[in-house]
Computed example of a mutant assay.
Amino acid sequence: MTLSVSATVERWPVAGYFIISRGAKSHVDVVRCVVSDGINTGTAEATPIYYEGESAEECAEGIVQFAAAHPGLDRATLLQNMPRGAARNALDCALWDLECRQKNTSLWQLAGLPEPFPLISAFTISLGQPEIMEAQARQAAFNGQRLLKLKLSGQDDRERVAAVHRGAPDARLIVDANESWNGLDVAAEASQLAKYSVELIEQPVSAGQDHLLSGVRSPVPLCADESCHTSADVERLAAYYDVINIKLDKAGGLTEAMAMAHAAQAMGLKIMVGCMLSTSLGIQPAFALAQLAHWVDLDGPLLLAKDRADAFQFEFGRILPGVRAG
């Protein structure tokens, strides 16, 4: 079957600024992919991985070119012939959506995933001065957020975490070092942060430097993010990490993301499902996969100034099944 495929770039403003150790963002450019068989239409969204050099324009162009070169397009062809990344994610998820509409079924049913139920999602506290992060945490807790994710930089991290804990003493905490702890004693840092209800540390060392964690006995589970892209990475990383963070943009779609989840389960690793900055369309397939996760970080839409009209509903720190969950 020959499908028509289109891809467009959309710009969505961020609510204020989104700040991590690599810099600040005032907007996010996403790729919206539409696939049609002439009767049914599948739609999906992906966010280019900027730290790997992807751009929305190049992803959109890559989608159209790949579809033109593969007229009998399906998910297996896509997985075998297109490199991982946001372009493949958009096209893969659009194909899943198309099949759901062709078969008049829900994504979770088609993918063999658990029936969706409300999930507690982390809410991100951007990198900043401790007093600013404390104020953001206090406001987030007032708004009902129960799981906060702190962006760290490798400098003054203990002060930042302590400040957030003061601002939201009852909140559960995740910290994201964003590869900034290469020169630090990871176990010692983790021991200090454990005092403040920190229950997970993401990517303490640079991708490719995971051996620095060899022999580290951390009292807080360590999670591979930038180091873990596809299912081929999971077995290697099991020697250094307790958890993997699955993001569909990194994996290149729901198809590979599910393979990652199954590989993690086979290796005894726990699962986190995360996202880039995105609208509700971008996290729709991730929400289905997140039913298998121990930690969920799908707050991308909450960090935008506005979302799509048929958005997910967030209530008291939870993301609720609704129109997009089906």
Rank of each mutant, 00 (worst) to 15 (best):
L3R: 04
P13D: 14
G16Q: 13
H27D: 15
V31G: 08
V34D: 00
G38A: 11
I39A: 12
Y51D: 13
G53P: 11
S55G: 12
S55L: 09
E58D: 13
I63Q: 04
V64E: 12
A68K: 14
D74Q: 10
D74G: 03
R75H: 09
L79Y: 06
N81D: 12
N81P: 04
A90E: 05
L91Y: 04
D97L: 07
K103D: 01
G112D: 07
L113N: 09
L119G: 06
T124D: 13
T124Q: 11
G128D: 15
G128P: 07
A137I: 05
A137S: 15
Q139W: 06
N143L: 15
L148D: 00
K149Y: 12
Q155Y: 12
V161N: 08
H165C: 07
V175D: 03
V175I: 11
A177V: 13
A177I: 05
E179D: 08
W181R: 06
L184A: 12
V186M: 05
A187Y: 12
A188I: 06
E189V: 12
K195L: 11
S197P: 00
V198H: 06
G208W: 07
Q209P: 04
H211I: 10
L212D: 08
C223M: 14
V234A: 03
V234Q: 05
L237D: 07
Y241P: 08
L248V: 04
G252Y: 01
G252A: 04
M258Y: 02
M260C: 15
M260W: 02
Q265F: 00
A266F: 00
L269W: 10
L269H: 00
K270S: 04
V273K: 03
G274K: 00
L277C: 06
A290N: 02
Q291T: 11
A293M: 05
D297L: 08
P301D: 02
L302S: 03
D307C: 09
F316V: 02
R324K: 15
